[in-house]
Simulated scan of single mutants.
Amino acid sequence: MDSGQQIFPYTFAVTKLDRQTLHGHKSCILWFTGLSGSGKSTIANEVETILYNKGISTFILDGDHLRNGLTRGLGFSEQDREEHIRRAGEAAKLLMESGILVLATFISPSGKSREAIRKSVEKEEFIEIYVQCSLEKCEQRDPKGLYMKARKGEIREFTGISAPYDPPQNPDLVLDTEFYSPEACARQVIQLLSDYGYI
């Protein structure tokens, strides 16, 4: 028997709208994508701090954190990367369904994978934020020393060096971290959320 024939999702009494009403605001997924070192996590941290002080319920999903748990055991092959992002997307969706605003920070190099997450939720519930920074600048920063290791061949299939990155074609917001500080970028995100009616 096909396993799908045994799955019957239960319809619970409390809905996403009920949970949003409880929190006092709408929920969505802010998906920060960009090269390693571009500033995704730093900006998300700034945004979450501002939202927390406004009484907005939030949660940050970070790539490195998930690899210590939910996606532990996955490597960095193209197939494993796609599965890593698929699981991250499902986790973000569940958190968003709980009525909170989710900040997801993942390199997520595949445009196809990001689009799959967008299509899995309702319109405007997935907000793609491209944290734009040149490879040269990211390498200069290299906060984790990963680019240096990749250049030496110690890390294989490293995005931007030995593995491709698909920049978003039509992101909801572009944050240029070569010219704007994390604080300035965070203010742009907050303005976008206000314009979209999330806060």
Rank of each mutant, 00 (worst) to 15 (best):
Y130L: 10
A116Y: 00
T177Q: 08
E136R: 06
E125F: 07
E125V: 01
E124S: 14
D142K: 05
R141P: 00
N170P: 00
T177E: 12
L146M: 09
Y165I: 05
N170L: 10
V131W: 10
Y180Q: 14
A91V: 15
G160A: 04
A91G: 04
S110I: 01
G145C: 10
A91P: 05
I117P: 05
Y130H: 15
L95P: 05
L94W: 05
R87M: 09
S120Y: 03
S181V: 03
A91I: 07
E115M: 12
R141H: 14
I100W: 00
R114K: 03
L95Q: 01
G153K: 04
T159V: 02
L101Y: 08
E90D: 11
P164N: 06
K144Q: 12
R114Q: 10
P167S: 08
G89L: 06
K149M: 10
V121W: 13
C133R: 07
P109A: 13
E90S: 14
A104S: 15
M96T: 05
E124I: 03
E122V: 02
S120G: 12
A150H: 01
G145A: 09
H84Y: 02
L95T: 00
R86H: 13
P164I: 09
I161F: 04
Y180I: 01
E128H: 08
R86S: 08
S113P: 05
I117T: 13
L175P: 10
I161G: 07
A92E: 12
Y165D: 08
R86G: 03
F126L: 13
K119H: 13
M96L: 08
Y165G: 00
R141Y: 12
E178F: 06
E124Y: 13
E157K: 01
H84N: 15
E97F: 05
V121Q: 09
K119W: 06
P143I: 03
G89D: 14
F126A: 03
I155T: 02
Y147H: 12
S134I: 09
K123R: 13
A104Q: 12
F158A: 00
S162C: 12
C138V: 09
N170Q: 11
S181E: 11
G160V: 08
L94Y: 05
S113L: 10
P171D: 03
A91M: 09
P109S: 07
C133P: 00
P164G: 08
V174K: 06
A163I: 02
V174E: 11
M148F: 11
A92Q: 07
K112Y: 07
D142E: 10
A92Y: 12
F126W: 12
T159Y: 02
C138N: 08
P109D: 13
C138H: 11
L175A: 14
K152L: 15
M148L: 15
A163T: 04
L103T: 11
A104L: 05
G145Y: 07
S110N: 03
K149F: 04
E178P: 08
R151F: 10
E139K: 15
E157R: 00
T105Q: 06
G111C: 01
I117M: 11
F126D: 07
R114D: 04
Y180S: 11
K123P: 00
P171A: 05
D172T: 11
I155M: 00
I107Y: 01
C138Y: 04
I117N: 09
D166R: 02
Q140G: 02
I100Y: 00
A163S: 14
S110A: 13
N170V: 10
K149N: 11
S110P: 01
